[in-house]
């Protein structure tokens, strides 16, 4: 399930309905949230299970992989299966 490469999530704020389902499914510890009741988008997620993307009723969560070498980021296409 986890691909172990940390990811940085991005949310389409125009589509987001603030339903909180992404936070509900998130296995992170307390506090991995944004001020808009979504999962955090300002720091990498090292679990990278991507369940938040699966549960989102409007499919508006995407991610970039953060390369392990720290040499910038590799951008994945939205909807790419993990």
């Amino acid at each position: 399930m986890s691909n172990k490469i940390p990811v940085l999530f991005s949310i389409g704020w125009n589509a987001c309905i603030n339903c909180g389902a992404c936070v509900a499914i998130c296995p992170q510890e307390a506090g991995f949230i944004s001020p808009f009741d979504t999962i955090a988008v300002d720091r990498p997620c090292d679990i990278a299970c991507l369940l938040c993307e699966d549960i989102c009723p409007v499919s508006t969560i995407t991610h970039q992989q953060i390369s392990l070498s720290g040499q910038g980021t590799e951008i994945t296409t939205p909807g790419t299966p993990s």
Binding site: I17, A21, A24, I25, P27, L51, D54, I55, C56, P57
Partner: peptide, 12 residues
């Protein structure tokens, strides 16, 4: 408190 993905309904 973790819930499994196959037990959380995504509703609209």
């Amino acid at each position: 408190t973790h819930i499994r993905i196959n037990e959380l309904a995504s509703c609209l």
